[in-house]
Structures are given as structure tokens and as C-alpha cells.
Design a protein around this nucleic acid. Sequence first.
DNA 1: TGAATTCCTCTTGTATACATCAATGCCGGG
DNA 2: CCCGGCATTGATGTATACAAGAGGAATTCA
Lengths: 248, 248
Amino acid sequence: MAERESDRSVSQTVRAQLALRDLVLSGRLRPGERISELQAVEITGVSRTPVRMALVRLEEEGLLEAIPSGGFMVKAFSERDILDSIELRGTLEGLAARFAAERGVPSRDLEPLKECLNEIDGLVRQDPISVEAFSSYVALNARFHALLTELSRSPPLIRQIDRASALPFASPSGFVMAQSALPEARQILLIAQDHHRVVVDAIENREGARAEAVMREHARLAARNLRLALRNRTHLDLLPALALITSG
Amino acid sequence: MAERESDRSVSQTVRAQLALRDLVLSGRLRPGERISELQAVEITGVSRTPVRMALVRLEEEGLLEAIPSGGFMVKAFSERDILDSIELRGTLEGLAARFAAERGVPSRDLEPLKECLNEIDGLVRQDPISVEAFSSYVALNARFHALLTELSRSPPLIRQIDRASALPFASPSGFVMAQSALPEARQILLIAQDHHRVVVDAIENREGARAEAVMREHARLAARNLRLALRNRTHLDLLPALALITSG
DNA sequence: TGAATTCCTCTTGTATACATCAATGCCGGG
DNA sequence: CCCGGCATTGATGTATACAAGAGGAATTCA
């Protein structure tokens, strides 16, 4: 471990959580495999107490599953589970958009959203979209979704969306990088950006049903990406989280 | 402490979690109040380690809030928060109903649901509904909602619904007991039961949109109950969880 | 008298020792 | 050869000791 004493500012618990999450997402631990506390202690270099804390947090995040007799194992996901998680997030984001539309948002709160839109426009203008542009898109897309969620002004809903988006393959930007290898890449990005624009328009005009429906459909682009990526399995290495998928 | 050595079978963590949850829900701890680990140790009689575990679990349950500098405090909820939590649950249950309808469920899986319906019918038949009948209704209603959620056959969605229903005032049966003191009690129960029947019918006929819409509206009965209960504040003692509400 | 600083106390974060329980493998008997 | 029970091993659950940090109160200086 090179970064043993890195970041003395963050707690041991967080450090362990990050290390273990990477370990799971990288696929070095097979789904269903038990992850023992002592083993985790060896890997992370911190003691059992923060390791335990990290394991509990990762379970609540959805990456681990508690074993009835005690301890944790790496969770396994079917393709259906992932598709459902995406639909779930879309439903929640749709609710957020509806709340925003029905309750109204001051126009100055829409400013950051529109800035996001413009910046993304600048990215998708280039015809073969560069890998760096994809990377920037991921960041901007995450920002847009976060801002949109905030517009609901509903702490319980925001909390739930954050939790639903914690799984990497359910997050709004989960499968964007997978697109980068696809021939349909630019096309899909243009559609996604149109969704973004439409939902802002709907909120502005206080059209709740429209805003909700568009966000639901928007999430389904991620599902489409997943299916495409699974079909041409060429660049699956772009999606480390897919190591958790089982053939179920 | 009278029950110091009660239930040697359950873990200390669970015991602490139950004790602290009761403490919070009973309102003996004010919203915003810091809950120190040592204090919790005194109350529960277990040591700091399981207390810590219980606090983390209660935070993830949504009853506590982490203080940035460390430790936890009792979370405060506005009336709007509660209404949003109910709408949120309704949305998720609506999604579950839609999944069930669209994907189809074998008729033998609908049997338990229909049994529930019949049993509830027996309860709401009496005209002044007794308090015991209300109590039975709460149990049957919880059972119905759990069965319905299962029909989605979607582990991620089931998990999320469970988490959304963990807050007592967001759970399907959260405000049923509050009705018992209301003049509109029986009327509301009859409507709720009609919703139950309609959603089963919709699922049977694979009408996804109908099933979803009905479950959403069904949840709004809870919101209606909350508003009614808050208006005539006579029997607010039936709802211990309302101690968490702030005038925000 | 007010404000800043220092010290103290109480808090949580971390490490580790101990107890307990489950799983597994071995040994003996049928 | 197979099955059952027992012992051993290693896991997690629990308790506690220690360290570091935040918050508050008191004191001192301007």
C-alpha cells in the first residue's frame, strides 16, 4: 500500500470505506464472496472498529449484503436488478421534477441549470466527441441531475434519490462512459440533452406531468446504454461496476 | 432497568436500537437534541460499541441526523417533510404495482392478497368500528402492503420501499390509528379498502398505469388523515411519532 | 468592561483484548 | 463405507482503555 499515511485529515472509517468500495467495484472480490473483518483490516491497514463501520456503511450503500449468521458478503446483481434500479431512479427523479414544476421555482434557481445546459451544448457540438468531452459530460451531467434534484426542495426525496444513485450502475452518469465506445454515442447524447432542455422548460411552465414523464424516459436512456454495452462487449472494461453482475 | 437481562437471544446492538428508537419516538428527546453515546449507554445498559452501532443504524433509518463535528442528534421533521415522505412512498408503491401488473403475477400469488381483502372486509363491515378492529386493520393493512410490494419481484425496489416505510409516519399504517378518533373514520377505511381491491383488479388485468395511479392516490389517504388529525388535535397521543414534528 | 486566549472537560474516534458462537474437519462407531 | 458427535479453529459480537479534538468557561489583559 503506497498511500498508507495519505490524507491524515479524513477519518479511518472513511479511508476504509473508500478502499473497500474500490475493492468491490474493481471486481477483485467475487459476488457472494465473504469479506472478513480481519481480511479487511489487512487490506486497509486500519483497525477492526473503523473497518466494521465501513462495512456497515457499504451494506447500507447496497454494495454488501449482511450474512444472517454475521458478517458481510459482496452483493450480486442480475441484469434485471440493474434495469430496475435505473427505472427506480428515474421514477424518483421524475417525482423531484414534478415537485419542482408544481411548486414553482424562482427563476434565479433555474440559472445554474441553464448554464449546465449551455456547457453541455458546447460539448456535444463536436461531431466525433472526444473522450475528454465524454469525461466532461459525465461531470456536467452529474451536476445537472444534482441541481434538478435540489429543485424539489424536499429533503426526504433528495435523501432517497441520493441513496438510489449510490449504486454506481444506477447513478445518472453510470453508463455514459460506456457510450463513448458506441457508434450511437453522439445520437444518444443529443437525445439526453434534449431531455434536459425539455424538463427545464416543463418546470418553468409548471407542467408537472410533463416534467415527470420526461425524467422517467430520460433514465431509460441509461437502460438502453446498458443493453447496448452488453451487446458489443468490446469496451466493458470502462464499467468496473459490471463485475458485480451475475448471469441470473 | 427492569429488563436488563431480557431476551438474551437478541444482540446488544438490536436491544440498544429498539430502546433508543422508542426513546426518540416517544418524544422524550426533543428534535435537534444531541444524543451522546455515554448517555445512550446509561439508558440502554449496553456498552459503547453496540450503542454506536445502533446510532448509525438509526441514522440510516432516518430518525437521527449526523452532526458534522461528530455524534448524532434527533432529526426534526416539518409537516411538509412528512407529506413528502408519504407521497414518496406512494410513488414507490405505485411503481411496484405497475411492475406487478406489467410483468404479470401467477394467480396463486394473488391468493394471499385476496385473503387479506376478505379479512379486511369482515372488519369494516361493523358500523362503529371498534378500537380492536382498528388494531386488526393496522396489521392486515401492513400485510397487504408488504405482499403487494413483493409482487413486484424487484429486490432493489422492495429494499427501497422498506427504507422509505421505515419512518413511522411514512409507513402505510402510520396514520390509521389516528383515524380511529375521527368521525370520518369508517368512510376513509372503506375508500382505502376500495383502493386495495382496485389495485388487485388492475394487476390481474395487467393494467399498469391504473395500478400505479391507484396506489399513488391510496397513499394520499394517509396525507389526508394526517391533516385531519392535526386539525382536531384531540387524540394526538395516538401518534407518538408526531413528537418529531416541528412547526417549520 | 469587553474581548481574546488558555485551559479544562466532555465528546467522539480508534485500537485491542476478551467472550461467544458458528462452521468445519476429524475421529469413532455403526 | 457412511453417519454422527465432538473438538478445534476462526469468525463476529462486545467491552473497555486510550488518544485526539471540539466546545465552553474562566481568567487575564487591554
